[in-house]
Amino acid sequence: MDDLFNNDALPVHVGIIMDGNGRWAKKRNLLRTNGHTEGLKRAKEIAKAASDIGLKFLTFYVFSTENWKRTEQEVGFLMNLIHSYLLKEFDFCKYNNVRVRMLGDKSRLPENVRKDINQIEKDTENLTGLTICLAINYGGRDEIIRGVKKLIAEGKTESEISEESISKSFDVPELPDVDLLIRTGGEKRLSNFLMWHSAYAELLFSDTLWPDYYKEEFFKDIGEFQKRSRRFGAVPV
């Protein structure tokens, strides 16, 4: 891996829009659900790779607030996939020192999924390695709206509203800004993912469908990130 990127200059937070599961399945004359199952395997591989190289935060876009528009069958399958996956992965998290957090509005999720999320968050809360954030029923605009409503409910005054206070009102207050945002599947848009956190993210769009996005490409993308000059609005001297 040393020839692919500089281990001493890793991004702190990588966000991934895992796009292309359905198209991957269609190309193979399989059901879309087969693509989601294969995509789950790839997420685990990338999570392990991220942990191995020492990343601090990795956020997967699992299910957006807009994904409820999909067929009832597909939504049901995705919810069951989340339910069957989460608690089974405690040993993986414990072995790799991985903490799990959720981004998104839990209120609309099935009760068993909410229970699973709460349990895995509790079970891993003291682990100190990679933090994996699962964005489930998540929308960037929705998170901002919910955060502002929280500040209003707390009675914050105008003078108390700042970037810092808004950031602390979000689902995972300690989540830092995104350094590298990767989208697979060939589409070139953010799709309401981490809108606040990605203000100065480096964007990288891959044509690879998510189930074919292996750790070798992930490492190459990190290497590409490290070649970029990040000025955050300043003019280079």
Rank of each mutant, 00 (worst) to 15 (best):
I182C: 03
D207R: 00
S206G: 07
D207A: 01
L194M: 15
G139R: 01
L190T: 13
I144S: 05
A201I: 06
T208G: 00
R146E: 12
T157H: 11
E143C: 04
R189G: 05
F193S: 04
K156M: 10
L175V: 06
A153F: 03
I144D: 03
E158L: 14
L190A: 13
S162Q: 09
M195G: 02
W196K: 11
L151H: 02
E164S: 12
S191K: 09
V148Y: 03
S165H: 01
I161M: 13
E187P: 00
E143I: 07
D207F: 00
K156A: 04
R141S: 11
I161W: 08
G147A: 11
E164C: 09
Y200S: 10
V178H: 01
G140W: 01
F205N: 02
L151Q: 06
E160N: 05
E163Q: 13
E187A: 13
I166D: 02
E187T: 13
I152K: 11
V178S: 02
A153T: 13
E158G: 08
E163N: 10
L151M: 15
R141E: 14
D177P: 08
E163V: 07
E187H: 11
D177E: 14
I144W: 04
G139F: 01
G186V: 05
S169C: 12
G139E: 01
T208D: 00
K150S: 12
T184M: 05
I166L: 15
D207N: 11
I161R: 02
G155V: 12
T157A: 12
S206A: 10
G185Y: 04
H197C: 09
S162E: 07
K156P: 00
R141V: 11
E158A: 15
R189Y: 08
E174M: 08
S191I: 12
I182D: 00
V148W: 00
